[in-house]
Design a binder for these strands. Structure first.
Lengths: 246, 246
DNA sequence: GGTCACTTTTGATGCAGGTCAAGGAGCGGG
DNA sequence: CCCGCTCCTTGACCTGCATCAAAAGTGACC
């Protein structure tokens, strides 16, 4: 939990510099961004914004994990977005948050005041281009997710989630796990249930079943070990070579 | 079925001119677009592209309805996008189609050759800006859809779909239906089932149930009459004032 | 008008996953 | 060390939707 310290004036040292919305910025564009940026920290479990709230900033996730979710009045909740480091939060042109945003771990945001950011998007191409690219990636992820929600069995859903997290983890650290994989499960059972459209009981049961069948093994409660990644992929129901786009 | 005729050189007369990806174009930008555009027609039921196919164009839907869908090897299918007139098809920067695209009615596309379109996006701001806006709208729609898929009951799913189509219909013709609504149901039972993550039997049963409960009435097989739109909204499970963003 | 192909509706039955309930397991604080 | 809290697991039971099956439209074509 050692608080990371960022030099508020040095984007060059930023850990997400090459993947975030500012990835393509020229030095002068970066300067303009630095003028309107500020960091905010949230503790695990804290709400970052509520759906419907006024939102006077947009932001990049610098570290930690946050979720976007939608709730119905009776309490049913569906996660609709999972924000990892470098992901973008907020929508230019929109004043109110459309979803609840919650910190799942301790989170650091690099916030940009909304108005100036919107102007910046209209006047400089590189931020807008990168944002389009990221939005298209998110849309692809959302569509993959829709297949999971609409057509997969509980077991396939759990396997798919594990595969997605393992892939992202690998992408972040640029390591191509030879065959097996080991990763931290950053979500509670409840968050997994909200992600997958299941109940926590079903999540728990299916994880136990995958463990029983030696598809996965748990170290502690949060570390997952996958002895044979292809075996896991087979359990997702997707075709062998795996078409997940994110 | 009277074939619409477009003047291939006159974007000004185009029925989707003000809503499509070209909506914000200046005359000179429009000229550049006209150089790389061509129309294609597809008949109802025809496949426009298959997921994985090479795709050397992107396009706007001029008329008709098309679906994006994903299939698993065993045949389970999930619709992940519904393209109405003015919606955009394809992704700049991607050579292969990510999804199956199927014409649900007779469809006319305004196609742009991919390479020149990509260049155009990098050099002129208005197309890219509009595309970002449209993509963000699609992402919102996808997230609404995820709540439907993950957490709603079959009855709520059907009611939600009816409400979405009624809203879009109203938006297209700019008519604010006073209280009730009447609209054409452009989808087969199978397409509805693929949209909602249900079977056609369940779709049929729930429509019968809504009919029995006087939430909707059918005229013929494809025209839906909603005597009290708020009653329908109540059946969707969303909060009263309705947060659907599209 | 009759036939064939296809879509839709309806009924009967089964099961995956939800619901309700009761313990464990891990952990910070007194 | 025990208490109280939160998170997770497991069991027993139930229900909403899928599945299987068949009948009833619907409409194109001869």
């Amino acid at each position: 939990m050692a608080e990371l310290v960022f030099d508020a004036n040095d984007c060059a040292a930023c850990p997400i510099r090459h993947r975030a919305v500012c990835a393509r910025c020229e030095p002068d564009e970066l300067e303009r961004l630095e003028e309107i940026k500020y960091y905010r920290h949230f503790e695990s479990g804290q709400h970052i914004v509520w759906g419907g709230d006024q939102m006077d900033f947009v932001a990049s996730v610098v570290s930690g994990i946050a979720t976007l979710s939608q709730a119905m009045e009776d309490g049913r909740t569906q996660m609709v977005g999972l924000l990892l480091p470098s992901d973008f939060l907020g929508r230019p042109g929109r004043k109110e948050a459309a979803y609840d945003v919650t910190a799942v771990s301790d989170v650091t945001l690099c916030c940009f005041r909304r108005k100036p950011f919107e102007q910046l998007i209209e006047t400089t191409p590189h931020v807008a281009q990168r944002l389009l690219e990221m939005t298209l990636d998110e849309l692809d992820a959302a569509r993959e997710w829709m297949l999971i929600l609409g057509r997969k069995t509980a077991r396939e859903k759990i396997a798919s989630l594990m595969a997605i997290i393992a892939r992202r983890e690998a992408a972040l650290r640029m390591s191509k796990a030879a065959n097996g994989a080991r990763f931290e499960l950053p979500l509670t059972r409840e968050a997994m249930a909200d992600y997958l459209g299941l109940t926590i009981e079903t999540v728990s049961r299916q994880i136990s079943a995958l463990k029983r069948d030696n598809v996965i093994a748990l170290e502690g409660k949060r570390k997952v070990l996958v002895p044979d990644f292809n075996r896991l992929l087979a359990e997702t129901g997707d075709d062998a070579d795996g078409g997940l786009l994110i």
